[in-house]
Nucleic acid binder design. Structure first.
Lengths: 166, 166
DNA sequence: ACGGGTTGGATGACATGTCAACGACTGGGT
DNA sequence: ACCCAGTCGTTGACATGTCATCCAACCCGT
């Protein structure tokens, strides 16, 4: 990295804007969600993913993969959610090590109560501010970035340079 | 919120893509930054903001405002960075309560060593993947979202509905 | 069926962030 | 000069996330 190619003004605008949006949008959405529904964003995401599933249940690692969380983090977080009665764990019949996360009725009620308000907030602070072209651009660009990050190494080590593993 | 207007497919693509990008991009940039320079992203941001300033020094609250951090968070974080010798605190001559955060030579060296690699990573994983149109769209859209969030209440309480404070 | 390597998940120690006080200081009104 | 509401920064308690490690159960070649 001898000649560092800095960001020009246009690139800088995009990068700084992205980061500021990221931070402010998150703060606001988290604030409203907590205030209106008593859920944190991580709570919401767990409940949301579970509720989208046919039986309201998922293997812990399957859920972790979908959410891009470490198993450890999910395990800790589920412990807290379990204490609040939002989810339970069941043994996995097909794999003695595994555990299955299940949405409780209270958990279902919580996500159903929270969802409309949360979606409205997402609209109010983001979606409804975008032109159709921007919406598509954001979708296209983000998916490209995601594919680029997921592609080269399938979620493993750094792909920077010569890699002795062929 | 009687008739919850859910996200249609196009909106959903944008929203999910954004969130996935957010997460993956962060993980990767943080990982590389830590590996290459031994800095966390928060470390980098603090050093970066300080180094952009004329005298390499800023009032704590000024820095906190720029970064959109709470004073408390910044105070804690500075304590850790101070222990590593990256910054120091000085008394503020004009305000007896205030404290001034100063970049140390070691801190300057750290940011100068880290910056080229970090910028390169930002390019590699984001900037260089965008078309010029997407770059401008991202800048425009993010700034609009930021203005919208900063506007109605100047970083104060919820702007949701009727507010008794006129 | 056994043994070695791998995976799923839990756990404890620790790093980090949030929130609610608190004490020090300021500045404006009297 | 003095009060006093508001601001600055720090602090401690707590919530959350990360990392290394552990154990049990799995897979697979023998």
């Amino acid at each position: 990295m001898d000649a560092p190619r800095w960001l020009d003004e246009r690139e800088d605008r995009a990068w700084r804007g992205y980061r500021r949006m990221r931070r402010l949008l998150d703060l606001e959405l988290a604030r409203e969600l907590m205030q209106d529904a008593g859920l944190s964003e991580p709570d919401y995401d767990v409940l949301s993913d579970l509720s989208e599933t046919p039986d309201q249940r998922l293997r812990l690692s399957e859920l972790a993969d979908r959410m891009l969380w470490s198993r450890s983090r999910l395990s800790h977080h589920l412990a807290r959610m379990q204490q609040r009665g939002l989810v339970t764990r069941e043994e996995c019949p097909s794999d003695g090590r595994g555990s299955i996360v299940v949405l409780t009725p209270a958990g279902r009620r919580a996500i159903e109560a929270a969802a409309p308000g949360h979606v409205a907030a997402v609209r109010r602070h983001l979606i409804d501010l975008l032109t159709p072209e921007e919406m598509d651009a954001l979708a296209a660009l983000s998916h490209r970035v995601v594919d680029h990050l997921a592609g080269p190494d399938r979620g493993r080590a750094a792909p920077t340079a010569a890699d002795p593993a062929a």
